[in-house]
Design a binder for these strands. Structure first.
Lengths: 417, 417
DNA sequence: CTTAGTTTGGGCGCCGTCCCAACAAACTCG
DNA sequence: CGAGTTTGTTGGGACGGCGCCCAAACTAAG
């Protein structure tokens, strides 16, 4: 979240200064709410005249509007300037084994559209899956158009490894995709006026949990539990990808050297004791309906919650036991990263309230820093939408860095939602 | 390493633009070597005229000098502009249980002065220890003054937890220091013209390994092994401290749930199997001289190396066994962070060449990403000087962000080293 | 109601920075 | 020795932010 995000070598000219100050003003309005030009100037350390010109330009680009009158104790009242998110939206998309999905929200973070299409990606050709996704994005675009809003970017979350410059999914074992030029196919199918970016699903889910501008949510560790366990790391408000994009493979930390064999071929991987399978096997016999893979995950988790709420001993023991292992692994990560928040996503979000005591117990024991290093445990409220949500947010991030990327709106005659 | 490091809300004015471009030019000279104004302009995407004014100002501040003539195939030859590190130095200092130390190097990274004073910090009052450190810093300052150079900053590494805004060591169990205002005492004793900053020892050691500007050394994981094991993380060229400054406590990851009891009270902490004590106990009987704590660490490690070089079976087995545990823990960290380089510091640097096969073996097995995620293993060449080195570098970091912090030199009549 | 004091927001001139274009200087090549 | 090439400097021009000023709008007191 630096003012100029350029790590590049490009020179800075006068326009960049303008860009940076526009972004500064816009972020301040986003993070600290509507204010008069004068108080905005005071907060930013600018003169009122400068802020006036900045606000004028942001208004032309449809990013802010004049709101209500605000009055101090004495003096002329000012007109509050507030973020106007309506005209610029970000689209997030996801390609998963079981479904493709899109989600759009506007600059204020308000949900605009959400779509999901169930399919079996493994039995389809990658081109067909992408064609389905293109249809979904088109439908979402139509909803935006009906509102008079424009898409500013599309960020696609995929499970696997990608090349961030080309948007090629190089290595997606879950999907069975290798060297699929996801971004190029989408660009060809959509001919969009906005950039199309490919990113890792877990990264986007992590980014979704870190609220931009909120200083208490800049160091976040997200655990995403399904059959496997993965996650993402946000440090200093920046997504941590690692040197080759492999960061966040928590599920294969070896926590029990002579433990259970993992799908990856090794023994004692964390996900063998903290993944969904471990929970189900501890909670029920093989003949139990919750062990039936034909049932949807949501239904099986709901049943586990129902039993736990009724006080079923075996279910509670399983949740506590798996929670303990989750806590042991989380403690390792907290000793390493000392996040402000540990967010439990995926299936943990559904049943996490029954695991939380065990997790917090293990964090208290296993983290060296006093009070578990100040890390609080939270359940994700985004559920399985985390990745698309993060994608939509990521698509909009550049607006707050460089508001001049949003075109000036030609007509500004009384628009209404 | 962003162009503008401001995460603050302060507005940007024309001077900031200048600062950023001066920094850009200076970093480019540092990272890509001396070049003519014209090629510098081409590399930075600026005009030659702008670069001329930038170089003129950097010259006035004594940061660059005109070097040799450079010639392309045809055309007028240019004068190479090169970084002139001589006049600005950074001082790093360290307060350890066994010693206090200082080190100064100049802007080019050339060592200027190094001092070390052995003492037993636990048997002394903190004020006395700091008084000894002040003496050392004064001597270092004198060496700088004799060269005509000025100190630009002092960064003090301490083992423990500090408040980075006040420079108070809040929690230093190794030293037995609690709420000691280290920065304030040093400022009072030195009345320096430069800023005094306190930071964590392991953080500074990690920062020392990450070469600024080298893209292959921006994601680094440093393991620092002594009796305990700690380390630091550099991600995207930025030091990772965590939300409360507790990041990097690798030693207390629990890697063997029912393992050996640790000094921290728990069982199976990584440092119980990967620390120096584990190596010594596996390598020799209690009566063996290398188990004698009266001998210096360096001597004992040298003896281990000697035995290993001679092919002593027990020593080799110990190095391999401990190396295996180092690798198991490192694999956990690499799955999490996917660094480009794993740097082995502390005692690992001394005997690491005998551990490396085991470590690399375990990384190959334990890291999910193919080829261990591209992580290469290196031995630190800084040894026990890593922290002071990193402190000196950290003291100079601001020069490359904002060169205007270095004052204009009044007289520029033919200075010589 | 009038007057003084306060706060807002916009206009104007100044300064600083960068870009562009033109030019002199210095060198190679034919 | 002149044509072509590259370098570094110089003089406008554009643009952005600051400081200062002023009109507008409101409160508080007489």
């Amino acid at each position: 979240m630096s003012t100029f995000q350029t790590t590049t070598d490009h020179s800075l000219e006068n326009l960049d200064l303008r860009r940076a100050n526009l972004g500064l003003a816009l972020r301040s309005l986003r993070d600290h709410g509507p204010r008069s030009r004068a108080s905005l100037a005071a907060d930013l350390g600018m003169t009122r005249s400068t802020v006036s010109t900045l606000v004028a330009e942001l208004t032309e680009r449809g990013l802010v509007t004049a709101g209500q009158q605000v009055q101090r104790s004495v003096g002329r009242p000012g007109t509050a300037i507030e973020l106007d998110g309506r005209w610029v939206c970000g689209i997030g998309a996801e390609i998963n084994v079981n479904h493709v999905a899109t989600l759009a929200h506007d600059l204020s973070g308000d949900l605009v559209d959400e779509r999901k299409l169930a399919l079996d990606a493994r039995s389809l050709d990658s081109a067909d899956v992408l064609a389905h996704l293109i249809d979904l994005v088109r439908e979402t675009e139509a909803v935006l158009a009906a509102r008079g809003a424009a898409a500013f970017g599309l960020t696609v979350g995929v499970a696997g490894l990608h090349d961030s410059t080309t948007g090629v999914l190089t290595h997606g074992p879950n999907l069975g995709w290798y060297d699929v030029p996801v971004a190029a196919v989408l660009r060809a199918g959509l001919t969009p006026a906005y950039p199309v970016v490919v990113d890792n699903e877990a990264n986007l889910a992590a980014a979704a949990e870190a609220t931009p501008g909120d200083p208490s949510r800049q160091d976040i560790l997200v655990l995403y539990g399904e059959i496997g366990v993965g996650g993402g790391i946000v440090a200093d408000g920046r997504l941590l990808r690692g040197s080759h994009g492999y960061a966040g493979e928590f599920g294969h930390m070896i926590v029990e050297p002579r433990g259970r064999r993992c799908g990856c071929g090794r023994q004692g991987c964390w996900e063998t004791v903290s993944g969904l399978r471990a929970l189900l096997e501890r909670a029920a016999d093989p003949t139990d309906p919750i062990r039936n893979p034909r049932l949807g995950i949501d239904e099986r988790l709901a049943e586990i919650n129902r039993r736990a709420d009724l006080g079923d001993a075996r279910t509670l023991e399983a949740l506590d036991g798996v929670g303990e292992w989750v806590g042991i692994g989380a403690a390792i990560l907290c000793n390493t990263l000392n996040p402000a928040v540990l967010v439990l996503g995926g299936y943990y979000a559904a049943v996490g309230h029954h695991m939380r005591p065990a997790i917090e117990r293990e964090l208290g024991v296993g983290v060296l820093a006093p009070g578990a290093g100040g890390t609080r445990v939270e359940l994700s409220t985004l559920g399985f939408r985390a990745a698309v949500c993060g994608g939509a947010t990521a698509s909009l991030a550049q607006v707050f860095v460089d508001p001049t990327r949003v075109p000036r709106r030609p007509a500004l005659s009384g628009e209404s939602a």
